[in-house]
Amino acid sequence: MTSHSRQIETKASKTMNTTAAKTTTALEIVLPGRVEPRDLQVTHRELPPPAAGQALVRVEATGVSFAEQQMRRGKYYDQPPFPFVPGYDLVGTVEAVGADLDPALIGRRVAALTKTGGWSSHLLLPADSLVPVPAALDPAEAETFVVNGITAWQMLHRFAKIRAGQTILVHGANGGVGSTLVQLARVAGVRVIGSASARNADAVRALGALPIDYRGDITAQVRAISPDGVDAVFDHVGGPGIIDSFRLLAPGGTLVAYGSAATKDDAGNSRLPVLALFARLMLWNLLPNKRNAHFYNIWTGARRRTRFLNRQAEDLAAVLELAANGNLHPQVAARFPLSEAGSALELAESHTVTGKVVLVADEN
């Protein structure tokens, strides 16, 4: 199946869309500023009918990711100015489409990567950005694989290019991205060492990884399992610990950094820690050390829209197919109604759960 065929077909058919033009009242969760989770605002907004190329999606599930936790603090690298509606990704059903699109799209379950706006009951989205979701997947379960699945798949296969028989280290192996990384790596025949808190060791082990305690001496624990180092490290923590991650690489190994959680509470410009991390990685690549270092950003290449969307759709479709076939197991930490997003965010920030906290549609 080609990347183009993985995307929802958005060309108009001979039968034009005859959906009645009407507005839709959307419930939205607004982040008004640097506030505590309990101070998120529940609002309503009228959405116009879909314009050309747009689809109206009724959101069935949307996630609480580390990005929203950073946005609440004003620390996400390129977040919009306050106030805005957070929500990095979603799964929902198409309820209406623009007049130029095939009405057969209506009723289809889809996934979308949004960066912001997903914490809504309804959303207008470009139809070419929607990816079909297999009917076998529950919306909340499928949601755990949208941004997490794309991120994990691309870091493993497009950046580190892992191979069966290798050994990797995944930091935060009990988290949303981490738990997906572990599972995808195990499907590929890779041995995984997963760092987490001691209380989450059993959960990490159940995913198929060898757990180590992130509060202990990570280098010593990894060397005890893999004395010659590891073939790849996936690090969302950043900060001083990134140096140890790089030193743990075996010759020819790859470090993929994809965040700076260690600096999330630091005062000052939110971009500086990321830029400093990026500069360090680039410097390491200039050294004759036979190791590679990358910074992963899911939005890299977005300016080349068609190629970007095809790649995202292809990778997400691969992940969702594995989930639908039972090769990946969704890690839903908890489900909250959309209107209780504040409580969901508090739980996600507690770091006491395995997997991803998901917001689902409020009951009528």
Rank of each mutant, 00 (worst) to 15 (best):
F278K: 09
L137E: 04
F308N: 04
V274N: 08
A67P: 03
N325A: 15
T300K: 10
R45E: 11
I212C: 02
A279C: 06
S245W: 11
I243G: 11
V35M: 03
A348E: 07
I8K: 08
R305F: 09
P227G: 04
G118M: 02
R6Q: 12
T43D: 11
T25Y: 06
E346R: 14
P49G: 02
A220P: 08
E363Y: 03
A206F: 09
D39N: 10
A164F: 00
A135D: 12
L184V: 07
A361Y: 10
V256S: 07
A261R: 05
A12H: 02
D228V: 05
Y77D: 01
Q331W: 10
R109L: 08
S226V: 05
Q70T: 13
P48W: 13
A67E: 02
M282K: 15
F246I: 01
N289M: 15
L210W: 07
V147F: 11
F82C: 03
V357C: 04
L287F: 11
P126S: 11
E314Q: 11
A140E: 06
D266Q: 12
V237Y: 06
P240T: 07
R305M: 09
A203T: 06
R186P: 00
R45M: 12
D265T: 07
K264A: 14
N269F: 04
P288S: 01
E349K: 11
S5W: 11
S197R: 15
R72A: 09
P86S: 10
I298W: 09
T180G: 09
L31S: 04
G87W: 13
E349N: 12
V190N: 06
D102E: 02
P80W: 01
G259V: 00
I242N: 04
A52D: 10
Y214C: 07
G175Y: 00
S245E: 02
I298S: 12
L125C: 05
V187A: 08
A61S: 00
T116A: 05
R163W: 06
R305E: 14
R191M: 11
I8P: 03
N310I: 01
L125S: 05
F84Q: 03
N269V: 06
L31E: 02
P240N: 08
Y77A: 04
P251T: 05
A333H: 07
T24H: 10
G241F: 01
A201E: 10
A67F: 00
I212D: 00
A185T: 03
R205H: 06
P49I: 01
S339I: 09
G268Y: 01
M155P: 15
D362I: 00
I193K: 02
H351M: 08
H329C: 11
R303Y: 14
E9S: 13
N364S: 14
R163H: 09
V91G: 12
S13A: 11
